[in-house]
Amino acid sequence: MKWTFFHKLGSPKWFYEISGRWLPILGWAAVLLILAGTVWGLVFAPQDYQQGNSFRIIYIHVPAAFLAQSGYLLLAIAGVVSLVWKMKLADIALKCAAPVGAWMTFIALVTGSIWGKPTWGTWWVWDARLTSMLILLFLYFGIIALGQAISNRDSSAKACAVLAIVGVINLPIIKYSVEWWNTLHQPATFTLTEKPAMPAQMWLPLLVMVVGFYCFFGAVVLMRMRLEVLRRESRTSWVRTLVEQSIGRGGSA
């Protein structure tokens, strides 16, 4: 019984219909949560006694860093599904989630670097979190570059899947070795986000932002996946009727 759901996932048409229903919910949830979290974090949250107001960057830096890591995990999971069950939808997910994850890593890096200026006095510090984010960005670039270099669609997806799995096994090793390297060279004086005890007024908006970023990530990946499904299925009759309908409505939707 349970498996019928799993097999249905392999059908592009079913996915297109169901994701069409989910997309508006996810999208609006993301917009509302991110707006609420931003206002809460910028206006209502108290300022940090040590860092003052620059600490408010936490409300975008930490969610982006979360998504950067979860995004890579998602790539690896999609890779396993694609290699084991040969599911085309997993190929599409892998291809579509990689650029979004890279953008999240980029946000985490840029905001971390901007945050570092008032905190440490320089734009870039080889802090453990920032360094592993930089390496993660390189890992994302590797997957994107490999996917674009191989022209055959199926082997490109499979190669990316293998690379994502190898990367995700390496990721904890990289993370811990970078942390170890960091404590060795500059005895941890002041890490950006590790606070002994954050009051609820500070971490509640953070929680809202994290959930909002997850919804945002999901919505953008779904949007990209839906387009990719249309491209791959452009010869089927259901896509044709869909395109014909969209002519009537001016090509949008």
Partner: peptide, 14 residues
């Protein structure tokens, strides 16, 4: 080089 060098980092550090 792009694929492999990030994976080499733990070995380099250790």
């Amino acid at each position: 080089a792009l694929l492999i060098l990030p994976l080499y980092i733990p070995v380099l550090i250790l």
